[in-house]
């Protein structure tokens, strides 16, 4: 079986790097985008099984990006990921398939990804 492909979207380079290394270790294939526009471009040309989307980003934030993604690919699974739980109550975040608060401990992130992918 082919490895699931995950697109990590975050404006912080080191977060991207951390997530890439941690998730590759779990056997995922990782694509990277540093903002919402880049992410949309990538999604138009490539197929990803899951998008891990940071919320606080300059330009187009995660919530807006989420809406755009759902516009072009209604069934694209997305997990929102932010520094804290401020958007948990936001209606638009309900459209996402998961919500993770960033932590040095990446176990919650990995578990949520596996849940969404049905692994």
């Amino acid at each position: 079986m082919k490895n699931p492909r995950i697109l990590v979207v975050d404006d912080e380079e080191n977060i991207r790097l951390l997530f890439k290394e941690e998730l590759e270790e779990e056997g995922f294939e990782i694509g990277l985008a540093s903002n919402g526009f880049e992410a949309l471009d990538k999604l138009k040309t490539e197929r990803f099984d899951l998008v891990v989307l940071d919320i606080k980003m300059p330009g187009m934030d995660g919530i807006q990006t989420l809406n755009e993604i759902k516009n072009i690919k209604k069934d694209q699974p997305v997990i929102l990921c932010s520094a804290y739980g401020e958007f948990k109550q936001d209606f638009s975040s309900w459209v996402s398939d998961g919500y993770v608060v960033k932590s040095a401990d990446t176990r919650e992130l990995k578990q949520t990804i596996k849940n969404v992918l049905g692994l």
Partner: peptide, 18 residues
């Protein structure tokens, strides 16, 4: 402020764990 601190903290902690 908390938000700004949170990201670097995740990075420090995350790589330390690795």
């Amino acid at each position: 402020i908390a938000h700004e601190i949170k990201n670097p903290l995740v990075i420090i902690g995350g790589f330390a764990k690795r």
